[in-house]
């Protein structure tokens, strides 16, 4: 039973990871791409790690998977924040479809 649930979770995770990469390619500019890269890939990886935990049970590897999950959830948004701030500061242009950029308005 735990094998089925574990493998299902890993499959869902892979699906989210796949769509994350898909969005990474399709979205127009750095910021939109970061959205896809951070959200989908974080959740996808979390699903894979939770699936690993369910599949293997609360042994040495399963608990390490949960610890890895905690670190990923904390570090990925921080990295995305650093990249987006740096690219805005470096003058990366936003896509034409962008409706408002309060950050540039306030910083000038």
């Amino acid at each position: 039973m735990s094998e089925i649930i574990g493998l299902t979770l890993v499959s869902i995770g892979l699906l989210f990871d796949f769509f994350g990469c898909f969005g990474l390619i399709r979205f127009p500019d750095v910021f939109n791409r970061l959205q896809a890269a951070t959200k989908c890939v974080t959740l996808g990886t979390c699903f894979i790690l939770v699936g690993t935990f369910v599949y293997l049970g609360p042994g040495a590897i399963g608990i390490k998977a949960l610890i890895a999950l905690a670190f990923i959830v904390v570090t990925t948004p921080t990295a995305a924040h650093a990249i987006s701030r740096a690219s805005h500061a470096a003058g990366v242009e936003l896509d034409e479809s962008t409706v408002v950029d309060k950050y540039a308005e306030e910083k000038d």
Binding site: G23, R26, D29, C40, S97, T98, V100, A104
Partner: peptide, 16 residues
């Protein structure tokens, strides 16, 4: 986000 990524018209309206 997945919906927006796979939708053919890509319904996004980004801004800061």
């Amino acid at each position: 986000v997945v919906y927006r990524a796979i939708h053919p018209d890509m319904p996004i309206k980004p801004g800061i």
